[in-house]
Amino acid sequence: MAGSAASLAAMSHAEAQSISETQSTVADAGAARPLQLTVNGVSRELEVDPRQSLLDVLRETLDLTGTKKGCNQGACGACTILVNGRRIVSCLTLASMHDGAEIETIEGLEKNGELHPLQQAFVEHEGLQCGFCTPGQIMSGLGCIAEGHAGSPEEIRFWMSGNICRCGAYPGIVAAVADAAGRS
């Protein structure tokens, strides 16, 4: 204890000021920052904590709960969405990194009461059981098709391998992606 007090007493004014500024910067790290996103075609102006993941902004701020929080470590794919047309796992990216981005989630696929062709294919091919992974599977499937990786069941399995289905509905998922790719 006496050593700590002696160290603090010996600290220069400049060192003390530097520590104070660092503490202030750390305290400001969580201050809300403006963020503009277009989510499912709707422009949104938000104030977000720069430490918030895109997944948490979607679920907690925008109440778009179709995107699931599975592992929160990027390993299961349940949180897959499209950002500027590319699939990403939203749990591993900060929302603040995507200012001005176009985001598409499972909620944005249905149009005028009609399921998206890939959603319909999931129903027809029984590409789901419990449904927890289904939004991420569908969004990843859309990315897979758009990227040109849906030429064969083997290719689909390879490019969809980042999306885990604990129920084991993989045959239906692969068939649904192949079917929807054939309709495109």
Rank of each mutant, 00 (worst) to 15 (best):
A121M: 07
A146F: 04
F122E: 10
G136W: 00
F158W: 14
P153F: 02
E124H: 11
C91T: 13
G113Q: 07
S96Y: 06
A121R: 06
I156S: 08
H98F: 09
L118Q: 06
E104W: 03
A169G: 09
C130H: 09
G127N: 12
I164E: 03
E147V: 00
E154Y: 02
A101L: 05
R87T: 12
A175Q: 15
C130S: 10
H125V: 03
G141H: 04
C91A: 08
V83T: 05
P135M: 03
S96E: 10
R166F: 06
E110W: 00
I81H: 01
G151E: 14
I145N: 04
T134R: 02
I156L: 09
C167Q: 11
E110C: 09
E110A: 14
C133L: 06
E102S: 15
C91V: 11
T80W: 00
G113T: 07
E124S: 14
N112L: 13
Q73F: 14
R87L: 02
G85I: 03
C167T: 10
R166Q: 05
L115V: 04
G113K: 10
Q119G: 11
E114W: 01
R157W: 01
A75W: 05
L109A: 12
Q120L: 13
A150Q: 01
G100D: 01
Q120D: 13
R86T: 11
L82S: 08
I88M: 13
L92K: 13
W159A: 14
